[in-house]
Design a protein around this nucleic acid. Structure first.
Lengths: 348, 348
DNA sequence: CTGAAAGCGCTAACAG
DNA sequence: CTGTTAGCGCTTTCAG
């Protein structure tokens, strides 16, 4: 009784799903030919190709991506490193990345960074040394992860701001929220407000965050007093706490917020302080998160194209991995001020 | 000139990261012993173990998960199938799943279902036939994906409601929002409202959704009229449109909404119709999404423990994959009515 | 306790 | 155009 090397015993019909060998055997071709059909790279005669595809369908064969990758096939998976997906910006960026990656045939992994997570374990989250990575580095945890990544991993990142010094990193994308913050500030000054206060989101760098800087730019250019930025967090609660005492001062008539959640907290604090929005106080947010158009009052805010940024970030990575065939990196929209009900002329 | 089989030419120092063989060679042990140390399964003498660990650190060796999995190692990866992560419920569930999975040492992949995505390509999203999967099946796309999954893939799912007929699926988890909807409805009736209107989220099944059913339960039990449920979508806009005409009718004094976004739209419609909340009209939402506590007025809503549900779903999957060692499935919180400013006594 | 051998499913050379 | 031969890095047998 002879048994060919590769075939498992016939009487043990383990429910193992079809492999490339099964397809090859049934189709009466070599395993390599099946591989060729799958990848469409090399030319295969139309007859064989059809037969192989036929068998593939019959057997319900699905290529094993792990084996493909292990055998040195092209990289077709990315891991996204991000912190706190509860935040609108990160979540929307993630959506953009996932969509673009999936469309390009990549499988995407996700790993959430905790505030506490050290640098050491970052590499351990990758499925293999050198796996492609995207980092959403809007906050400190993300920036640290980006920095902790071994040099040999192909990475692209969505960051809060352009690098502090030296040339731009060609593998990073960001939104020009400095200009946007300046624009929003000028808009408020144009409404007759003497100055604008700013509630800041936490910074990802030691340097001055972009939004803070843009706000200062505009005030300085207009020769207005520049108040201390109010340190806020990411939540409505932190916005509420940041301005609660400030709002007793009726000379404060305009507040720009680092994000829409902060603005939500600020509006609540205003209500409790008996300030009317926008009659008494103008509030402007940042992000244009989905609820903002329906708030009471609806929120004037800066729309940021996070999804577009995420798509672009993947586009960058794709070009890095496969400069020959990757399509051009898609553009993303410029920030745009959306004027709604929460802002108006300064009180007389 | 002789070249040993396994070693690449010395003069071509390709930056290939250290493999288990490299560790073995440097440590002067067999490759298998290194494997034993890594996995901690079999016993290794303390001396060798220490030496191996030492070398691992020196070389910066990291196991290749792909190779581990391919070689038949234990399954340590899951992919999550979900639709529209822009929705709070899905996003929060995803967070819970990811956290639990990562904590248990699993890498997690994510693949977003589109409304249009057919059943055929579902299996193609998996990294290998038989990969473990979690499905967030709160809507139709998720339910279809769950159904389309090949029988041999180990799956656990977070679903909108218990299966229509037959016994509960032991690999599914859900929130008891039927009871919660009934509770919220009774609360409103207790406030003196004659009846309660309901703006529904889209259903994932042909059967009556849980929330709708709970709302009807409570009205019937109290012998009140049961209005037609108003079909809504997921967005504030759809809530706005659903009730715009209805609110002209002053006899409508209480509206329960299938989620907080709908409630947001309803509140805006109410404002435009000149209705006062809660003096004139009570609005109750569902989910307790982050902004709801800070809205104007703040929203009475049903808090749902999506993150806990996600963690439990992973716990279930873990037990399915490894019944021996997986810890008990963590419990999640019961829905809870959070009373805030948007609801009050019926107008006189 | 340790080592040697045989693959996991696939792709990348090479032959024909 | 097609088949053959090596591995990818690891885990599982099976022998010592």
């Amino acid at each position: 009784m002879e048994v060919t090397g590769h075939m498992p015993a016939q009487d043990a019909p383990r429910a193992r799903s079809a492999s490339i060998w099964d397809v090859a055997r049934v189709a009466g071709v070599s395993q390599q030919t099946v591989s060729r059909v799958i990848n469409g790279k090399a030319r295969v005669s139309e007859a064989t190709r059809a037969r192989v595809l036929q068998v593939i369908a019959e057997l319900g064969y699905r290529p094993n991506r792990l084996a493909q990758a292990l055998a040195g096939g092209p990289v077709r998976s990315v891991t996204v490193l991000t912190s706190d997906t509860a935040l609108y910006g990160a979540a929307a960026t993630l959506r953009g990345m996932e969509e673009a990656a999936r469309t390009a045939g990549f499988s995407v992994g996700i790993s959430v960074l905790e505030r506490t997570s050290g640098q050491a374990d970052i590499a351990l989250r990758l499925n293999r040394p050198g796996e492609a990575v995207m980092v959403i580095a809007f906050d400190d945890a993300g920036v640290r992860a980006l920095r902790a990544l071994p040099a040999d991993v192909p990475v692209a990142a969505a960051v809060e701001r352009r690098p502090d010094d030296g040339p731009d990193d060609p593998w990073q994308v960001w939104l020009d929220d400095r200009a946007a913050a300046a624009h929003a500030t000028r808009y408020l000054l144009g409404l007759g407000h003497r100055t604008v206060h700013y509630v800041a989101i936490p910074s990802s760098t030691s340097a001055l965050p972009q939004r803070t800087q843009g706000w200062q730019d505009a005030l300085r250019a207009a020769g207005r007093p520049v108040p201390e930025p109010l340190p806020g967090g990411w939540s409505p609660r932190s916005g509420y706490l940041a301005v609660r005492s400030l709002l007793a001062d009726r000379s404060v008539t305009a507040v720009l917020c680092g994000n829409d959640d902060l603005a939500l907290g600020v509006m609540r604090a205003a209500r409790e302080a008996g300030r009317d929005i926008p009659g008494d106080l103008s509030v402007v947010g940042f992000d244009d998160s989905p609820p903002s158009a329906y708030l009471n009052p609806s929120l004037t805010t800066v729309r940021l194209d996070f999804e577009g940024l995420g798509r672009a970030c993947f586009g960058l990575l794709h070009r890095r991995l496969d400069p020959q065939n990757a399509p051009a990196v898609p553009a993303w929209s410029e920030p745009e001020l959306i004027v709604r009900e929460s802002s108006g002329p300064a009180p007389a």
